[in-house]
Design a protein around this nucleic acid. Structure first.
Length: 851
RNA sequence: GCCCGGAUGGCGUAAUUGGUAAACGCGGGGGCCUCAAAAGCCUCUGUCCUUGCGGACGUGCGGGUUCGACUCCCGCUCCGGGCACCA
């Protein structure tokens, strides 16, 4: 590394007073330079290898909150670091700008959602700039931009044409608070809306769906190939919920025209079926109910219909399983026995066939129901002798199962399925918990679904040349809950693209998760006007090398985006490289306050602007990097401000070390000499390199190794610790008399490795020292010889307890280490003249004398 | 209920392969500088016993493996998250 050209402190006496680190001015200056220089704008023609680093598309809710700050600090660090290591890093950003809050604000204040949203975007952009995060702003996308809406609608059409989008009547989750349909994923376990908290109701409506289930197997099978946090992959696996089993028919006694089809994952337990159950919504219920049981069943159905999701699931538990006997019987094909058919709300119409064979001995839900209704229980698996539970689901040998007796479960399953298939009664079947994605929303502030209904021609898509279909601006936002689109005559009424006659538009808009399901592809080519994005440009950048976001998107967004990517590849719109869109994912922890969620009032207290205006963005960034592992949650406490101030103090000290070393000396010298004299010079005059100098040189190269390794393993907190430790050492070195060449290399290295973390200060200090831009410098490379430790502390133990520590060369031999250890007074004393039983030597770290 | 994480000083945390537990920081104590303060600098800070030297204990709890365990194994407790009648 070249010798730094530093402005001599002797030239201007008041140098460091004049050039004291003015946080606000320096940060502003560099933010403007990064914005205007185009340094972080990259194109596919760039000769450097491509990297794509992306933070999740933010919803613009106004100024950034600390969760954003954390996210974008990590993202910015990677962008700057990878750029320094020689990559052309694509770092785009945009805004997930459709959604309910803007529309609710419009209802409350009358301000149009577009105006509201654009204001919020400007506020968020200001926060991002204030943080010093760098982006290729030319590529900015907003969901509500007509050019984006257009391609959203084109993609919807392609999905529709390929059978991936369809319209169906379905019982949907209706939130009375939001006055709209919710996806299953937006309904919490207790049956309330994740957004408003209202109890969600069931309604039957014609809705638009995306056929994500067509990709269930691929979404599941590709998970192991992804470099994602294991827990996110587990969540996705559970959400897809693949289960293997068999589906088969049960003949209805006395009704040769009817059959009840059931799905089971345990075909081996079929001999233990003692009854069958239909979901209340099952179409056969009406046909199977005998007149004498009609009233009882009707009462049950009535209760189920009015019961909210909440009641139905919470009462579920174990005991109060509600059900009624239909009066009909079905024949168990395995043993030809007739068993009663019940209707019960613990069976769901939406999974499998909506009907099950009940085997109480091997299924706890069936067991609970059988107990309440006095139904027989027949074991088909021999439980262990000490088994004290009710239903037994463990391993064991088959019993009471005729030709399956004595077999293990897995083998019995295969035989049972083979038997069903051979006899034409049923077959092997795989079911998924994953449902198709309901995308219809009865809302204004979203992407309109490009469909026209013609009384003569039926359902038609809007021709490509007429896209985008845009929502009209002249609507009234009223708290009636109905979408303004459904009330706007000018929007609804149109002409049929086929026959030219009068027709009406679809008034539903798309779930905003649609917008965020392909934006990362549009970022590759946000300028294209003839296709959603140029596939060659997408091929160049995709897949995203590092995707960063919150754990809260582990299931929904990440599943939808994977589905979209696969579908777009199959439709020929995206290149195969995009099939799995995010090769590496990092999910950061959440910011918590007072142990729970951030309240609005408290949330305001931690607005980042408060720190930008005082300690500066670098201090806030340094705090977020150092407070703990990036994946862990952060508790925002009383201590937090003090830690941030500590970060600011460190920055001041780093500034002095880099551009005003004489001040460091001055401040320390006052202690050393009680202020009577000042050292004559910052640096030692002698030219020879001493062992102390070599120690600093070696520490410098070790710093490069440490920080680089820590960056690569997402351990920013330890990278910061390494830098602080190094700075502490440099300060002592300076006070004790530094060799100028060694010191300059050390401080330059420290600035370089911290440049991705605290870009403003390092850029300013570097410019003063060298006159050029630190972020355009290459990442430092350690000399492996220098990075090696020369000496190490060897521990001498007696029976595993540390007795002595001694500095030894790393090259120490076993014999030397042993004799050194055995001659130590404490070891000699412990031995008391005896020979050690055993000596364990692990050079150069440890000798353990066992006596 | 099932599936994942996690538990280390007063606090946030570190220990990358089974080898010095507590790096780095926050807070706190003492000191220097100052008329004084702020800032800065130096220093101490796991617990207990001891005047000191030194010693004992110490990574949620109980066992185990090992010369040696924060780390591996078995059994628990508590906390956080996900799923929750998915047959």
């Amino acid at each position: 590394m070249e010798v730094a050209k530093i402005i001599s402190p002797y030239e201007v006496a008041s140098f460091f007073m004049a050039r004291a680190y003015d946080v606000q001015a320096v940060e502003k200056r560099w933010q403007e330079r990064w914005a205007s220089s185009g340094f972080y704008q990259v194109d596919a023609s760039d000769p450097r290898p491509a990297q794509y680093v992306l933070c999740m598309y933010p919803y613009p809710s106004g100024p950034a909150h600390q969760g954003h700050v954390r996210n974008y600090t990590f993202g910015d660090l990677i962008v700057r670091y990878r750029t320094m290591t020689g990559f052309a890093v694509l770092s785009p950003i945009g805004f997930d700008s459709f959604g309910l809050p803007a529309e609710n604000a419009a209802i409350a204040t009358g301000v149009h959602p577009r105006i509201f949203t654009d204001q919020r975007i400007e506020e968020l952009k200001a926060s991002l700039r204030g943080l010093g995060a760098v982006y290729d702003w030319r590529r900015e996308i907003r969901s509500h931009d007509p050019s984006y809406i257009r391609w959203n609608q084109v993609i919807f059409k392609r999905f529709y044409e390929a059978g991936l989008a369809y319209r169906a009547e379905a019982p949907v989750n209706w939130c009375p608070g939001c006055q709209t349909v919710l996806a299953n994923e937006q309904v919490l376990a207790d049956g309330t809306c994740e957004r408003s908290g209202d109890v969600v109701e069931k309604r039957n409506l014609k809705q638009w769906f995306f056929r994500i289930t067509a990709y269930a197997d691929e979404l599941l099978n590709a998970l192991p190939t992804l470099d994602w946090p294991e827990r996110v992959k587990v969540m996705q696996r559970n959400w897809i919920g693949r289960s293997e089993g068999a589906e088969f028919d049960l003949e209805v006694q006395g009704r040769p025209d009817l059959k009840v089809r059931v799905f089971t994952t345990r075909p081996d337990t079929s001999f233990g079926m003692t009854y069958a159950v239909l979901a209340p919504e099952h179409p056969l219920v009406d046909l199977l109910v005998t007149p004498e049981h009609r009233q009882e069943v009707d009462e049950l159905l009535q209760r189920v219909k009015t019961a909210s999701e909440l009641e139905r699931s919470s009462s579920g538990g174990a005991l109060e399983k509600r059900g009624a006997f239909t009066g009909s019987y079905v024949i168990n094909p395995f043993n030809k026995q007739a068993v009663p058919v019940y209707v019960a709300d613990y069976v769901l119409m939406s999974y499998g066939t909506g009907a099950v064979m009940a085997v109480p001995a091997e299924d706890q839900r069936d067991f609970d129901f059988a107990k309440v209704h006095g139904l027989p229980i027949v074991r088909t698996v021999q439980p262990p002798e000490d088994f004290t539970g009710e239903a037994y689901t463990g391993e064991g040998k088959k019993i009471n199962s005729e030709w399956l007796d004595g077999l293990e479960i897995a083998e019995a399953k295969e035989r049972a399925i083979a038997w069903l298939e051979a006899n034409g009664i049923g077959e092997r079947k795989v079911n998924y918990r994953l449902r198709d994605w309901l995308v219809s929303r009865q809302r204004y502030w979203g992407c309109p679904i490009p469909i026209i209904y013609c009384p003569r021609c039926g359902m038609l898509t809007v021709p490509d040349e007429d896209l985008p279909v845009l929502a009209p601006d002249d609507v009234e936002f009223k708290p009636t809950g109905e979408s303004p689109l459904a009330l706007h005559e000018g929007f609804i009424n149109t002409t049929c693209p086929s026959c030219g006659g009068p027709a009406t538009r679809e008034t539903d808009t798309m779930d905003t998760f649609v917008d965020s399901s392909w934006y990362f592809l549009r970022f590759c080519d946000p300028w294209s006007t003839d296709v959603p994005f140029n596939p060659e440009l997408a091929r160049h950048w995709m897949p995203v090398d590092q995707y960063i976001g919150g754990i809260e998107h582990a299931i929904l967004h990440l599943m939808y985006a994977r589905f979209f990517s696969k579908a777009l590849v199959d439709l020929g719109i995206a290149p195969t490289e995009a099939r799995e869109p995010f090769s590496r994912l990092f999910t950061q922890g959440m910011i918590r306050m007072g142990g729970t969620k951030m309240s609005k009032s408290k949330g305001n207290l931690v607005a980042p602007s408060r720190y930008f205006e005082t300690v500066g963005a670098d201090a806030l960034r340094l705090f977020h990097l150092s407070v703990g592992p990036p994946a862990d949650d952060v508790d925002w406490t009383d201590q937090t401000d003090e830690i941030i101030e500590g970060a600011a103090r460190f920055l001041d000290r780093l500034w002095r070390l880099a551009v005003a070393p004489e001040e460091v000396l001055d401040r320390s010298a006052r202690v050393e000499t009680s202020g009577s004299t000042k050292a004559a010079s910052v640096y030692r005059q002698q030219d020879e390199i001493t062992e102390a100098d070599m120690e600093v040189k070696r520490a410098t190269h070790r710093l490069i190794v440490r920080v680089t390794e820590d960056f690569d393993r997402w351990s920013y907190n330890t990278a910061v610790a390494a830098c602080r430790e190094f700075a502490n050492m440099l300060q002592r070195y300076l006070v004790q008399g530094a060799h100028r060449v060694v010191y300059d290399e050390a401080i330059d290295t420290l600035l370089l490795v911290m440049a991705p973390m605290i870009p403003h200060l390092t850029a300013e200090a570097w410019e003063i020292r060298h006159g050029d831009h630190i972020h355009e410098r290459p990442w430092p490379v350690a000399d492996p010889e220098l990075a090696k430790e020369q000496t190490v502390t060897m521990v001498v133990q007696v029976n595993g307890k540390v007795k002595e520590r001694v500095e030894v060369p790393v090259t120490i031999g076993e014999a030397e280490a042993e004799s050194m250890a055995l001659s130590m007074p404490k070891v000699v004393h412990a031995l008391g003249g005896d020979k050690p039983k055993k000596v364990i030597i692990r050079v150069p770290r440890l000798v353990n004398v066992v006596i």
